[in-house]
Each structure stands twice: as C-alpha cells, then as structure tokens.
C-alpha cells in the first residue's frame, strides 16, 4: 500500500518540477537582458570576485582589478539556469563571459589580449570608465614634466 501510494505521487511531483523548471528557463533571457543592459560592465563567472573557483574566471577578475573597473558579477555555479542561460544568450560555450554596455565582449582569452593591446582601456573609455592603468600612466608623465 505504501509503495502504491509513493508511486502515484512521484510523477505528479516530477511534473511540477518540470513545469517549474521550464518556466524559469523562459524567463532567463529577459533576466540576463536586464542585467547586461543595466550595468556598464558585467562578468558572468565561476565563484565570486573574492573567491573565484576557476583559473579563467580569476584571470578576468585580476584584469578588472588592475584597471579598477567597477562591475557587476554573477556566479554561474550558484545557478544552473544562469549557467546554461548565459551560454545560450551569447552563443558562447564557455565561462567567464564579459559584457560591456550590453554587448558581449568575450571570455578570458579575449580580455587578456584586449588588456595587453590597450584595447580594453579604449573600450572602457567609451562607456565612461577611466582605467586605473591610464590614470597611473598620466601621473607618471606628469612627474616627468
């Protein structure tokens, strides 16, 4: 009897979970949309800036720190929906992902190369963020005068 009781209950429970899950998935695109459009710089990463849980995410955090960029970060390990949702949203298969002004900019490799080439300073300038590296460079020049 007990077995019968359980059996009849499990599918209902599953059906509920399933519909709940698809409801959440339907909303994820809108959720990401509003996140990336309401913040100048957004990083989707594994872990949090103070404790990244992936070397690639950590590299992006370090780059942001060097430029002293204020950014909004989201831990995809804390939210499976977001982890898949962000990959679908940007059509990019890996984490971390960086957005500037609502536009997907790239992952760790691209951020690293943009940092090395100076392109990142320019991209930040476009959205009104002055890189700390630029400030430091200017201060140095001022001293030499």
């Amino acid at each position: 009897m007990n077995l019968l009781f359980r059996r009849s209950f499990v599918p209902i429970n599953k059906a509920f979970q399933l519909s709940y899950r698809s409801f959440a998935e339907a909303g994820i695109k809108e959720k990401i949309d509003s996140i990336v459009k309401n913040n100048k710089v957004v990083v989707f990463m594994k872990g949090v800036p103070d404790a990244p849980r992936c070397g690639f995410s950590n590299a992006v955090v370090q780059i942001m720190r060097m430029h002293a960029v204020p950014y909004d970060s989201h831990d995809v390990l804390a939210d499976e929906n977001l982890r898949q949702g962000i990959k679908d949203y940007s059509n990019w298969p890996t984490i971390p992902q960086v957005f500037i002004n609502g536009e997907f900019v790239g992952g760790c490799d691209i951020m690293l190369q943009m940092h090395q080439s100076g392109e990142l300073i320019e991209e930040l300038k476009k959205v009104g963020i002055k890189s700390a590296l630029l400030t430091a460079e200017e201060a140095k020049k001022e001293e030499q005068k």
């Binding site: 594994k46 872990g47 992936c54 070397g55 690639f56 995410s57 950590n58 760790c108």
Partner: peptide, 11 residues
C-alpha cells in the same frame, strides 16, 4: 599555458 585551476570543475 592557461591559468591554474581553482577547483570549480563539476561543482
């Protein structure tokens, strides 16, 4: 080589 892992895999 790529940055060191920080143990986030599979979690």
């Amino acid at each position: 080589s790529s940055p060191n892992c920080r143990g986030g895999f599979g979690k």
